[in-house]
Write a protein that binds this DNA or RNA. Structure first.
Lengths: 226, 226
DNA sequence: TCATCGTATGGTACGACGTACGAGTCAACC
DNA sequence: GGTTGACTCGTACGTCGTACCATACGATGA
């Protein structure tokens, strides 16, 4: 049924349901919103493979098949969870920034931080379509660039370059999140076959935030108008 | 059994197996290598979800459980397929290049091309560890940068920035590979809520190769020593 | 008052999946 | 002939996504 996609649970008429005295504080009614926040919780707790429809229903105190009233299928749940995590929560007006570089750095750091708060989102993103919250972040970015005077001909390249950089950095950061021991061991094994990256201690460096900001600086240097 | 990990099928002694006349051209013996190339074929043909142990065994003309003699589990198959696809096949000596920028562009374009030949690899990478072939590409890159005179203090930032850029660009490219119709439709829907990206026709621009190269140029401008 | 209808719930069942277990084959060596 | 190790694979188990269907209930109209 296509119709059910728009379905929302209607409000119960104000507590007029005569409460059968002993009802043991049963769960609130299902809703698309409850499903999404619970899915995010579950993903945070158990990772990508931890999300199953059965577990999700358990957490919601409902039967598995009830979920399908609000959701098309599991893919749909992934899409909704991802987009929900990427919602921009900062203030929309940017008057607080002196120059456009600061502004862009802020936008992108916030983006990265949102994803790192939910590491599964980084590995999910490459497989999913653009949700509204991603688009609205792209819109912010592109609007700032345009105010900064980036030439129209360079606009799309600039947007994609910054997007690529953020995606790459975030995905890398999220997936390289090994324990110190693991990384030390990996670094150890490099010695003979990969002398150069061994010398620079590539895998031991863990100032991710600093590296992100510095690399972004380099990219912005290149992108600067003039 | 840890022992079996090192197992290799030994060679049949030179055709001394007295061929029971009618043997209908049976499959060659299983081997780790055959499993990997077949897995890559299957992934190319059916995508990430298309790879199942049963289908893989079918294509190999073997029983499912036989695979587990050569492979720990399905994750292992993914790791092997990914790393196999990332093997660098170009010439190792770079004398042919005048300057380091050309060289780096070549390395990174080859990297990107290798992954785009097998689009599943882009969405797989964020979830897997660094295999030997990835490391050796990083080694090439870092060696070139070091010859180019990038300051030691900037080395890791430079490597990660370039890596991030390539990963982001490749993943984006691979996952945005919608049909023209789909993109036109998506672009249509932007009009009211996302005016700026609508105006720049962000989703319609499809000179991916050009954008990759141009953005990389900007990044290299920023990274250039001095 | 009763029948009907849309909204919402969820039990049962099916076909696929990854893989543990253990029985089997066969060549090489004692 | 007996043993050993390399290799093959049938069976079975638990878990998954979800199709199908029966049910419950409030609102509506007769």
């Amino acid at each position: 049924m296509a119709a059910k996609r728009g379905a929302r649970s209607k409000q119960r008429t104000n507590d007029e349901r005569l409460q059968p005295v002993q009802e043991p504080r049963s769960e609130p009614p299902l809703s698309r919103e409850r499903i999404v926040v619970t899915a995010v919780d579950l993903l945070d707790a158990q990772g990508l493979d931890g999300l199953t429809m059965r577990r999700l229903a358990d957490r919601l105190g409902s039967g598995v098949m009830s979920l399908y009233w609000y959701v098309d299928n599991k893919e749909d749940v992934f899409d909704l969870a991802l987009d929900s995590v990427l919602e921009y929560r900062g203030s929309r007006q940017m008057a607080e920034f002196q120059d456009w570089r600061e502004e862009i750095v802020h936008i992108l750091e916030d983006w990265r931080a949102s994803m790192l708060r939910h590491p599964w989102s980084a590995s999910l993103l490459p497989r999913r379509a653009l949700g509204p919250n991603i688009l609205s972040r792209l819109e912010m970015l592109s609007e700032t660039l345009s105010r900064a005077g980036v030439a129209a001909a360079d606009m799309n390249v600039a947007i994609w370059s910054l997007w690529n950089y953020v995606m790459g950095a975030t995905i890398t950061r999220a997936s390289f999140d090994l324990s110190d021991d693991d990384r030390a061991a990996a670094q150890q094994r490099l010695s003979e076959r990969y002398p150069t990256i061994e010398r620079s201690r590539l895998l031991l460096d863990d100032d991710w935030d600093g590296a992100f900001r510095k690399g972004l600086g380099f990219l912005l240097d290149g992108l600067s108008p003039r």
